[in-house]
Simulated assay, not measured.
Amino acid sequence: MKIHADALLFDNDGTLVSSLESVRRCWTRWAQEYGVTAEAFGRIQLHGRTAGEIAADLLPADVVPEAVARIERLEVEDVPNGGVHLLPGTREFLDALPADRWAVVTSATRRLAEARLEAVGIRPKTLVTAEDVTRGKPDPEPYLLAARELGVEPSRCVVFEDAPAGLAAGRAAGMTTVALATTHRSHELDADLVVKDLTALSALVTGHAVEISARD
C-alpha cells in the first residue's frame, strides 16, 4: 500500500515517543496527593486526553486548575528521571522528511511536550499543543490547525496516531489516517492503515509530495 501526501502530522506520546513509565509514575503520585481512590483512578483513561479532561473527571471544578498545574509540574520535572524514549523507527522516519513537511500534534501542554521532545532530540518546526486549541482530540481542531500552519489542504495530510480519539480527530479533519499499534491492539484502531510502529513504514520525498509505503 502506498499513501501520497503533502504533509505528515504526528501525535507524540505513543506515536513518536513512549512516556508510559513517566506518566504512570506521575499520575499515581498526583492521585495520591489529591485523594483520588485507586478504584476511581483505575476507571480513567489517561492516554490521548488532556490533563484538564482527566482532572475534571476526578475532582471538583474549583480544584481542577491547581491540579492541572500540579500534574504538569510533576511530569516536566520527571522527564530527566527516565521513562521517556523514542519508539522504534521514529528517528529514521523523521530523518527522511524535510522539516516543513511534518508537525507534532499533541494533547499535552507546550511545556511538557517540549520537555519530552527535547529529551529524545526531536525538534519539530511546527508543534500544536493543548494550549493552541479550544477543543482537543477527538475534535478535528488540532489537526486542522496543524494543516493551516503548514499551508497544506487537510485532504493532503496524513495523521499518525496510536489512540482511537486521535484517529477520530484525523478522520473528522478529512485526513488519511495511519494507526500505530503501540498502546492499543490492532483491532481497536480504526484507520486507513494499521501497522505495529514506524519501522513498518518508509517515506520517500518526491518533489512536493511524500510517498509512504508499508515495508514487506
Rank of each mutant, 00 (worst) to 15 (best):
D6N: 13
T126S: 10
A99C: 11
G207D: 14
E141W: 08
A147R: 03
R49T: 05
A119F: 05
V17H: 00
E153A: 15
A168T: 15
A55C: 12
P142Y: 14
L189Q: 10
D13T: 06
A209Y: 02
R91C: 07
R70I: 00
L20I: 09
K196D: 14
R116F: 02
R91T: 13
S186A: 15
L150P: 11
I44L: 15
E149K: 14
V64R: 01
L180H: 02
T126L: 15
V36L: 09
V133D: 04
E39I: 06
A7C: 08
W102R: 07
R101A: 08
L86H: 02
K196M: 04
T134K: 07
V105N: 06
F10D: 00
G35I: 05
A203P: 08
L144E: 03
L16G: 07
E161S: 11
G170S: 12
A56K: 09
V158T: 13
V64S: 03
H184Q: 13
T90S: 13
S186M: 08
R148W: 01
V194R: 09
H208F: 05
F160M: 03
R111Q: 12
V210K: 02
G121L: 10
A108M: 01
M175F: 11
R123D: 12
V205F: 15
A200I: 00
I122P: 06
G89E: 01
E21C: 11
L145N: 08
D57T: 03
I44H: 04
E161L: 11
R25N: 11
R25S: 14
E153V: 07
G166T: 08
T129H: 03
S186P: 12
T182E: 05
E188N: 12
G83C: 09
W27R: 12
V152K: 02
R25P: 11
L58D: 04
A55W: 01
R185W: 00
W102Q: 03
L198F: 04
A168S: 15
H85M: 03
H208G: 10
V178D: 02
L16T: 03
P140R: 07
T199P: 04
A99V: 13
P142M: 12
A214Y: 01
L180N: 02
F160G: 02
V120S: 11
W27S: 07
L74H: 10
E72W: 04
E161I: 08
V133L: 08
S19Q: 08
E39V: 09
E33S: 06
A56M: 03
L180M: 05
P98Q: 13
P154V: 02
E21W: 07
L9D: 00
A67Q: 04
V104D: 01
T129V: 04
A214C: 13
A103G: 09
E114P: 10
R70V: 00
L204G: 02
E33G: 07
E161H: 12
T183H: 13
R171Q: 13
L58M: 14
T28G: 15
V152T: 12
S22A: 14
A108S: 14
E114M: 13
M1R: 09
L189G: 06
E161A: 06
D13V: 05
A7R: 03
A203I: 08
M175N: 10
A168L: 14
T134V: 09
S107H: 11
R156A: 13
R123V: 11
T129P: 10
M175P: 04
G174I: 02
R73A: 14
V36H: 06
T90V: 07
T176P: 03
C26S: 15
L16M: 07
R171W: 07
E188C: 10
E161P: 09
T50Q: 14
